[in-house]
Design a protein around this nucleic acid. Structure first.
Lengths: 339, 339
DNA sequence: CTGAAAGCGCTTACAG
DNA sequence: CTGAAAGCGCTTACAG
């Protein structure tokens, strides 16, 4: 592979001059520029990004550590992150934690070793020492979706409280009184918040959230199935179950179908996170939609701001309820939303 | 961030010695080793992978350029690739081409600039000059899922021919005679092969595949919807439509439902690529399943073989039909497969 | 405008 | 076993 020396030799200039034309430095003669460009062309030269990074101490690369790539919500988040980063001149390296703290640490470490310019993370847990140290040591960082309290890092997320209130109002309006939730891990902010928001919204209607109606899931499908089975085995099963993410909602659908029951007739279902496939399930699932693309883009902007010395704002965007058919809604040809 | 010099100073040895203990070089005294390790510990030192890569000319990184991350098939592929790579001591950087040749080129270029050790690609098109040049120039490369004919690069893919034959036999057995296909882009190998396999299988039953029954899609959902609408507008619509990938199958479901029709009663549906969600649609979709995880792992093994100087085998794995309910099958409580 | 030189943080023959 | 030194491929003050 041709190096800058080869180009210099071919163009009859010094490597310094080659470097200047490659970096659009103003003080290069037109003549030198054309000769260098010609040499680059004939040699098919491409600058070695590794060498450049070592010299400049910047990689123009962002690390993104997400909890679970197989979750469509995170896949979409990753996609928007990459798009925005590309627009701003950065590449992104994705690390999939698969909801495992040890894997999360592995990726954070690897990313740090590669000297990425900044880190975007959706923590799987309360925060490993490694990650906290990195944040304290000044590694530009921002949390997306999930975050760790008490760390001085911008947070870009969506606030589902209002949407959860809308959902509960919707369910209450449909006559439901026994509402249950499949919660995410208490070690995650989203795991905790969705339960709290649900409980508060219920309280506003004088409704209780008994322990038996709080099922502990882990944001993955199998846990949603198990929890739902438990609900169905109760002497007084809930009328509605609210899954704290899309994968657990799928597990719930599974459990219901396995017993030969129907949604919403036998058990109504609602989910946090709206994904394309919910339109195609039967019945289409009523869900709370996050502005996923927006979140990804805002997170990248905040991180790049930090990297480039600007403040880097926290951003909280609203989520919204998308009413479909899984809660016993009156059939409508058109999708409605409660905006 | 502490450098190797700081560690050397702290331990009272030369940087060479530090490097040796870090790389498990045998000729280091036990004393020096403990001192270095202690220094590493107190300084929280982590070797700079960028510098190491520049020096050793290897990054221990694989590039993976896939056609579309939002397609669950590729998401799963990416996941298995990363797992196997990690097990073999490599990281992977994913580039999402989003079915766009220009984006594919962007990622290939970026990855090459970063001096990844090898490239795994599922080409979006017939192959850009950039990619072909890289292959010829000796960049270790392997194709996964899709490939480019005439290039000396191992191919790891699954052969769907037998499964397509099984599918056609299955459909024929259910009494279907008018079968249509939603094809992928002819510029891709999988786009072409699935049509051919389908046509050949039909021929074995004396059935024809008229042009009107070949809809041109692009592997994304919207195209599946459009093609299906076209089929339904035909004077003699097909009885079954076979979508060449899962996203186009979803588009097809959409089109059918939008007209108030039902699968399979009004139009039967089968898909190439089996994804989790197909179990949860109504009806569950009969599909051809690829051994996705196996493919990803085999591809990584082939690539790492090439990188480390071993041959690097092409691998072709069989796909299999998974019969469910979308083709008018007799209801069964248990999923069957035609193995 | 241009080039020689230093240096980024490592690894690795080469002497000793 | 250990260290001084060269060198990976760049960029960038510093002179001229």
């Amino acid at each position: 592979m041709a190096s800058i020396k080869d180009v210099a030799a071919e163009a009859g200039v010094s490597v310094a001059t080659v470097s200047r034309v490659l970096n659009d430095h103003p003080s290069v003669s037109a003549d030198a520029r054309t000769r260098v460009l010609a040499a680059v062309e004939t040699l098919g030269y491409r600058p070695n990004a590794v060498a450049r990074s070592l010299r400049t101490d910047q990689t123009h690369t962002l690390g993104l550590v997400i909890s679970d790539v197989m979750n469509p919500y995170f896949t979409e988040l990753a996609r928007s992150v990459e798009e925005e980063a590309r627009a701003l001149g950065y590449s992104v390296i994705i690390g999939n934690a698969d909801e495992r703290p040890d894997l999360q640490d592995h990726h954070v470490r690897t990313l740090l070793d590669r000297r990425i310019d900044g880190l975007l993370v959706s923590p799987t847990d309360g925060g490993s020492p490694l990650m906290l140290d990195a944040a304290r040591a000044g590694t530009p960082m921002v949390f997306v979706d999930r975050w760790i309290p008490g760390v001085d890092v911008p947070v870009v997320r969506s606030d589902g409280r209002a949407a959860v209130r809308d959902l509960v109002a919707h369910l209450h309006g449909l006559g439901h009184r026994r509402l249950a939730i499949i919660a995410g891990p208490a070690a995650t902010t989203t795991g905790r918040e969705r339960v709290e928001a649900f409980r508060e919204a219920l309280a506003a209607y004088g409704l209780d959230l008994p322990d038996a109606y709080i099922g502990q899931g882990d944001f993955q499908a199998e846990s949603g199935r198990l929890v739902t089975e438990g609900f169905l085995d109760l002497a007084e099963p809930p009328e509605v179950v609210f899954a704290a993410d899309n994968l657990m909602a799928l597990g719930a659908l599974d459990a219901v179908r396995a017993r030969g029951l129907r949604v919403p007739d036998d058990l109504a279902l609602a989910a946090f996170d709206d994904i394309r496939w919910f339109v195609h399930t039967d019945p289409p699932v009523t869900a709370i939609a996050q502005p996923t693309g927006e979140l990804g883009r805002a997170a990248v902007r905040a991180l790049v701001d930090r990297i480039e010395g600007r403040p880097g704002q926290s951003v909280t965007l609203p989520a919204r309820l998308v009413v479909r058919r899984s809660c016993g809604e009156h059939p409508t040809p058109v999708q409605r939303s409660t905006t």
